[in-house]
Nucleic acid binder design. Structure first.
Lengths: 151, 151
DNA sequence: GATCAGATGCAACTCATTTGCATCTTTTAA
DNA sequence: TTAAAAGATGCAAATGAGTTGCATCTGATC
């Protein structure tokens, strides 16, 4: 472990604790551990996956499910539709779909809302007879990765 | 029932029968009935929904599940991800590529045509290090329909 | 029409997710 | 600082969508 990791971890946990607090959830070791997993692995996980990565910090299955649900309700996690048979979640970091523009000279970074999803949303609304408000969307692509495509 | 409906229904069923035949599936009353449901209601349905609409033409639950699965495998139905707890399907009418608006409150679903998906797919591929082939995608919008938005 | 692969219904089963409940921990308010 | 209240947890039992084994039936093929 590198020098400073301890402090880094502590401040990370403090941030996670605040996240809970800000959402009116009690700060418990289990919740922190679950948030750490999502924060560490940066990928969609289902309850089983969370459990697997919790390793030493075991949390009861029922608690994991309850936690994922409450995190989703609070907007801490967002549900991801991957055509799987179980429900996956990932950290919901503010803007759902965004990329970055980085300045080569000064290093300044700008977030950009992806792919014209906003415009697509507007188009969808314009085409709709029943809706006038879109809160959210899901856009997932399905294909074959290069590794699998070698065969 | 309007004049001509009988013939219309017969020819419709014949078309559905052909659909089965072309996909190497035996033509059975149950399968025709299930296809009729999808063809009539034009909206994503899960096994329960299909069962409900089958009314007189009851088909065993297990058969419905098996049928939905085989229809998906053959490309007759396509799976739709609506953040529901069960799996929804709709007719996969090649030409008519569309997505959905889903009301988060009442669950009502509206089809929307939103094109430019091809371009988004290309963008996604360009941004990907692991993929060079996208076969499919899902794009669904979640909001509140006008009816629910009155409150 | 006989034969056979495939389709169906039924009942039993699986497995992800949920729930009831007693116990424990965090938060709160004194 | 501490006691009470509110909320979180673990465990075990329950739920419910979806699956499977099996005997029976039906559509396709000859």
């Amino acid at each position: 472990m590198k020098k400073g990791d301890k402090n880094t971890n502590r401040s990370k946990d403090e941030a996670l604790a605040h996240l809970l607090q800000d959402n009116g959830l009690k700060i418990t070791q289990g919740r922190i551990s679950i948030l750490e997993v999502f924060s560490k692995y940066h990928k969609p996980l289902n309850a089983e996956g969370v459990s697997k990565y919790l390793k030493g910090n075991k949390v009861d299955e029922a608690t994991i499910y309850r936690t994922l649900k409450s995190f989703e309700e609070k907007g801490i996690l967002r549900r991801v539709d991957l055509r799987n048979d179980s429900v996956y979640f990932e950290m919901n970091e503010g803007h759902h779909h965004h990329h970055h523009l980085v300045c080569k000279q000064c290093g300044d970074i700008e977030d950009v809302d992806v792919c014209e999803i906003d415009r697509l949303s507007k188009m969808a609304l314009m085409n709709s007879s029943k809706f006038k408000l879109i809160l959210d969307h899901s856009l997932e692509f399905f294909g074959v990765c290069k590794a699998c495509n070698k065969g």
